[in-house]
Design a protein around this nucleic acid. Structure first.
Lengths: 149, 149
DNA sequence: TAATTTGGTTGCTTTAAGCAACTAATTTTG
DNA sequence: CAAAATTAGTTGCTTAAAGCAACCAAATTA
């Protein structure tokens, strides 16, 4: 499907994929810890982790050779999902939790100051809302945002 | 579940939810146009749109009173998902499509210049990667990023 | 006036997810 | 050092969700 969002959705566009990403970002690496924290069945976790590995988002590495124990860790491609995760958290904190307050705070590792709100910024520095942009066909061109017909 | 990402996932954390958001952002409003562009079955589309309406992400408004024709449009809460959609597109463009080039370009409505890359910025202006942050329990506190036990 | 479009609903089939039991190494505990 | 527990799964069965096709009534277009 010739759509960036659809591509993302294929790789981790479901509940479990997003929760695996969340846990991976906070440092979870083992099969059993993902299982315990997320609370999904083993066969589904197996399938989802395999998909992430196949798509280069995570790497499966042996802790010690021949041990049968592994670490699942984010690749560079996986770590690049960080702004997506943060923007999701910020949206939820504001629009779902609201004045209840957020469950987790993301802070700068150096100094512990809160981070800025993730925003879409124009080349000239203006913050853009969804009404301020236009969509143009890219290099792959053709009809924009259409997948079939 | 006391987790911001899980809350988001409940509302539109699946393939169809993300594709509906994509289309809504580019201006799709009618049931039939969502159906045609996304290519999902009517019953699932009905259920998904209802969920988005129930959660305040979209509003269902009659085009003309008593006409039986509706527009599904993003609320303020829904439009606030914009940075998430853009960060997903940018990730996919870079890490999935790569040098093939992106299918769609998001440009500034004023002047048509490309937008900046969506990033996580510290209070002091530094761009932060996933290794540069820490996670602290928020006001809702308790154990961070744990939902059960 | 007839055909088409819109926005669905209903019923059936197929696919995916959840659950429990089992396994075979490996590691920890007494 | 033996027994228990943990890790990282697999297999089989059940239940929930998605896909598909047909159908429908009101409104719109030809």
């Amino acid at each position: 499907m010739n759509c960036s969002i659809a591509q993302f959705a294929e790789i981790l566009g479901d509940k479990w994929g997003l929760l695996i990403l969340r846990d991976a970002l906070v440092g979870v690496t083992t099969f059993s810890e993902f299982e315990r924290r997320i609370g999904l069945s083993k066969n589904v976790l197996t399938e989802r982790l395999n998909r992430l590995v196949e798509n280069g988002v995570m790497a499966k590495v042996s802790t010690r050779p021949k041990s049968g124990r592994y670490r699942y860790e984010l690749t560079e491609k996986g770590k690049a999902l960080f702004p997506i995760a943060v923007s999701i958290m910020q949206w939820s904190d504001k629009w779902v939790f609201g004045n209840e307050g957020e469950p987790i705070k993301v802070v700068d590792g150096k100094g512990g100051a809160p981070i800025q709100s993730v925003e879409v910024i124009a080349r000239d520095g203006r913050t853009l809302s969804s009404d301020d942009v236009e969509y143009r066909p890219g290099p792959r061109g053709g009809r924009p945002y259409n997948q079939d017909e």
